[in-house]
């Protein structure tokens, strides 16, 4: 590796990391929080709501899971302006990714709720709790524990998926790498470097996932 290569790696490290900290991380975190709320609401609606609401939720999950995320982002960013709704790249990305997390996450949340034993509901009911109280106080906390590993996977997947936002002009980490490649003509170096930074982010998240799993397992022998 020549001195020039090393210099390029060093010079591009901070701009890339900066793009990661300014765009990739906020986009991932905001999207995951919104997506998770959407996932919980969608799961509850699909399980318990009045039939027409259930159909709407089923339809939403069907559409989002059945079409490519990349196409969804294009529709939101390039397509919606034709219908009179023009959004900046960042809000477009937030909306696109949140809808995706919400749809996939709802299946995780639903499975976790179903995994809580029927006896837990019955114990809550026998104490005079309403369904909402039983859900909030007894079932969801236990479902949360079950859903942490798969949700952690989703979050790590999401961090990497945010690189798709490059195609809708968002100056996140991968787009920044493309820009630097355009001036340095070193695609192998730069794309490997950005891959390493993504790997760094994912690794930190895996550690956090393990910690939260351990925290949530504090009341359980298993």
């Amino acid at each position: 590796m020549s001195d020039r290569d090393i210099q390029i790696l060093i010079d591009s490290f901070w701009p890339l990391l900066k793009a990661g900290v300014l765009y990739t991380i906020p986009l991932s975190v905001i999207t995951f929080v919104l997506g998770l709320l959407l996932a919980i609401v969608t799961a509850l609606v699909r399980m318990y709501a009045w039939a027409p609401f259930r159909w709407v939720a089923d339809f939403y999950v069907w559409i989002i899971r059945g079409t490519p995320l990349l196409v969804q982002l294009f529709i939101i960013f390039y397509g919606l302006p034709m219908a009179g709704l023009t959004l900046d790249a960042f809000p477009s990305a937030i909306i696109g990714f949140s809808l995706s997390v919400g749809a996939y996450g709802s299946e995780i949340v639903r499975a976790a709720i179903v995994s809580v034993q029927k006896g837990q509901w019955e114990a809550a009911y026998s104490l005079g709790m309403t369904r909402l109280q039983a859900l909030r106080r007894i079932v969801l906390p236990q479902a949360a524990r079950v859903s942490v590993p798969p949700l952690g996977n989703s979050f790590i997947g999401l961090v990497k998926d945010t690189s798709l936002a490059a195609v809708i002009t968002l100056a996140e980490m991968f787009r920044r790498a493309q820009q630097i490649v355009a001036t340095t003509y070193e695609p192998l170096l730069l794309y490997c470097e950005v891959a390493v930074i993504y790997l760094l982010f994912s690794t930190v998240l895996s550690v956090l996932q393990n910690l939260s799993e351990r925290y949530l397992a504090r009341y359980s022998a298993s």
């Binding site: 006896g119 114990a123 009911y125 026998s126 104490l127 005079g128 109280q133 007894i138 524990r145 009341y219």
Partner: peptide
């Protein structure tokens, strides 16, 4: 239901709460 208390064959304690928390829960909620 508020006038009855039930004890189940398989206990069905709330595993995410301490013994104390289990007995407090319905009084507060």
């Amino acid at each position: 239901r508020k006038q009855t208390g039930m004890v189940f064959q398989s206990f069905n304690l709330f595993p995410h709460m301490t013994a104390l928390g289990n007995v407090i829960e319905a009084q507060v909620t």
